[in-house]
């Protein structure tokens, strides 16, 4: 793929990613926020593809933009009008502090990236075509990262049980 084409795709994906991110935070209706996050996740998947992470890009679209966001949309639909809270909270001073804190985080990261740019961010390692393919990721998961794989499955199991417990109405409340 030619260099210019990659740059064009990168710009579209990065721009879409940032625009939908701003939309998630700024839109009042939670339903539109969730839809914007789906766009955000999809454009991130494009960036993952450019970084030779094919399996992760597929997992991002299937697991995140698919399953997780469907869960979100169901809850938004279940809550209906009750999901709408005022846009921002607290006294104006707190809101200004939030903006300053977020800007400080951003400036810190950008400065660190800028300082490291000349030294070691310019020449990425040469990778084979199979870098990031499902076969390589899968092999790592059952060899050197087996423990992480098993712990992940336990985390998901605990979360599933927790979700059921939280979603079950206690008996005494049903009587009311």
């Amino acid at each position: 793929m030619s260099n210019v084409l990659v740059w064009i795709i990168w710009f579209l994906a990065a721009g879409g990613c940032l625009a939908t991110g701003v939309a998630v935070v700024s839109v009042t209706n939670p339903f539109y926020s969730a839809l914007a996050l789906i766009g955000n996740l999809a454009s991130l998947a494009v960036l993952y593809l450019l970084l030779a992470a094919e399996f992760l890009a597929a997992a991002q679209v299937l697991v995140y933009a698919g399953a997780v966001m469907v869960m979100f949309l169901f809850v938004v639909a279940y809550l209906g009008g009750r999901a709408d809270a005022p846009w921002a909270g607290g006294p104006p001073l707190l809101r200004a502090a939030a903006v300053v804190a977020a800007a400080a985080l951003l400036v810190e990261v950008v400065v660190v990236v800028g300082l490291a740019w000349g030294d070691n961010l310019q020449e990425p390692a040469e990778v084979s075509d199979s870098f990031g393919s499902p076969a390589e990721i899968g092999e790592l998961f059952v060899t050197s990262h087996l423990l992480a794989f098993e712990i992940t499955s336990i985390v998901l199991l605990v979360a599933a049980i927790g979700g059921v417990v939280l979603g079950t109405t206690p008996e005494k409340e049903e009587a009311e």
């Binding site: 991110g21 939670p30 969730a34 999901a83 909270g89 939030a98 977020a102 951003l106 990261v109």
Partner: peptide, 18 residues
């Protein structure tokens, strides 16, 4: 930039969903 946007959302919005 994305992290900054997300942090701003967490600190400013009031709806737990957002």
């Amino acid at each position: 930039l994305l992290f900054g946007i997300g942090a701003l959302g967490v600190m400013m919005r009031r709806s737990p969903l957002i």
